[in-house]
Computed example of a mutant assay.
Amino acid sequence: MSRCKVLVVDDSAVVRQLLSELLASDPDIEVVGTAADPLLAREKIKRLNPDVLTLDVEMPRMDGLAFLENLMRLRPMPVVMVSSLTERGADITLQALALGAVDFVTKPKAGLAQALGEYAEEITGKVKAAARARVRPLATAAQPLVRLEAAPASAPVATRFRTTDRLIAIGASAGGTEALRVVLSQMPPDAPAIVLTQHIPASFSRPFAERLDRHSAMLVREAGDGELILPGHVYLPPGDHHLRVVRDGARWRCRLDPGPPVNRHRPAVDVLFQSVAQSAGANAVGAILTGMGDDGARGLLELRQTGAPTLVQDEATSVVWGMPGAAMKLGAADEILPLDAIAGRLLELAGHTVAA
């Protein structure tokens, strides 16, 4: 199998050199060139025909998002964004993923050479996964984002959300920020409560929750420790914490866990799914969307073994079919569905009837 050809685009000469050396240390990767800005990158893409592009999120003298948008319209190819851990960096990265970037890695704030070495496995793994990703032209990769009207703030909770004892649990990774947007945008405001885990850095969790909330009729928020889980709400873990669901009498509550990474992730999908299996059992519905690796596969199997319906996103609509594929191999999924059909099926399995 031929090596993955990578073009590194970054305005910093130091970062270009370090990323090139780090990527080239993997025998399955060949760094075919570097570029200091998108204009140079455009010419080198034509000449070198790389399989994957690494692209700095914030670059002076040139708008990286504008370059990415043009690239995904005219010559769609796998792109891994290299992001800072700032709030602005998080917002731009999420916009880049909406435009069709496959995944992202974050730059450490200090000790660049040493820190990048520590992240070698993550960076090389994401680049190689990106080379196998399904990249679509921007016209189909990014749908128009519409802010749905929420229920009036003065409306009492009892009239805004119907009572339910069902719980939907969703896990995702690479490609998941947009896949989750698609699923949540199709959910009605009175849908059963949703708990989710997306592999994302700590500083990205709040901007991510806010972005999902803007495009969903449900209320999307970072979970608080001990917070009651309510219908019509979506909960995701804040910064660097696992999210667990615990039973409190006839109710469920969120439990935040700063414990060690599981499957090299914190938050981890397996942690969420296993807690849902223990606390909700057959009253839950589980789903794994696009993502790299196998996190969540064992947890989804535990959910299925308790009698909970389970499903995964199909290979054709997944950016990376690692996590869903791993769940299929374990026999953890009852169904496999394209992305656009997942929200409706989750509601059916949860016994939800949308009000007329």
Rank of each mutant, 00 (worst) to 15 (best):
F273V: 05
D248H: 15
R244D: 06
T290S: 13
V271C: 00
N263S: 14
G249Q: 03
P258H: 03
G293P: 06
G291S: 01
R266F: 02
P261I: 13
V276K: 00
A297C: 09
G259V: 05
L256F: 07
W252I: 02
A280G: 06
V262M: 07
G249P: 01
V285R: 09
A282T: 08
V245C: 07
P267S: 11
D294P: 04
L300Q: 03
V269M: 05
P258V: 07
R251A: 15
G293T: 07
I288W: 05
A277H: 04
L289H: 08
D270S: 11
P261A: 12
D248K: 15
A268R: 02
C254P: 06
G286I: 12
E302I: 08
S279Y: 07
N263C: 11
I288P: 02
P260E: 14
Q278Y: 09
G293D: 05
R298Y: 10
R253H: 10
V271A: 03
V246Y: 06
A297R: 06
Q274M: 13
R253Y: 02
G286K: 08
A280I: 04
Q274P: 02
F273D: 00
N263D: 12
L289E: 09
G299H: 01
A277Q: 05
R244H: 11
Q278W: 08
A282Q: 13
N263I: 11
I288H: 02
R298L: 14
Q274H: 13
L243C: 06
D295N: 04
D248G: 12
Q274L: 14
A284S: 12
A280S: 09
A277V: 06
V245F: 09
D257N: 07
G249R: 00
N283G: 11
A280D: 07
D270R: 10
V269H: 02
P261D: 11
L243T: 11
A287S: 13
L300F: 09
F273H: 00
R298T: 15
A282N: 06
V262Y: 00
V246P: 04
P258I: 05
P267G: 10
N283C: 13
V262F: 00
G249C: 03
E302H: 14
P260Q: 12
R244A: 12
G296L: 07
R255K: 14
D295T: 05
S279G: 10
V271F: 01
Q274V: 11
L243E: 08
I288T: 04
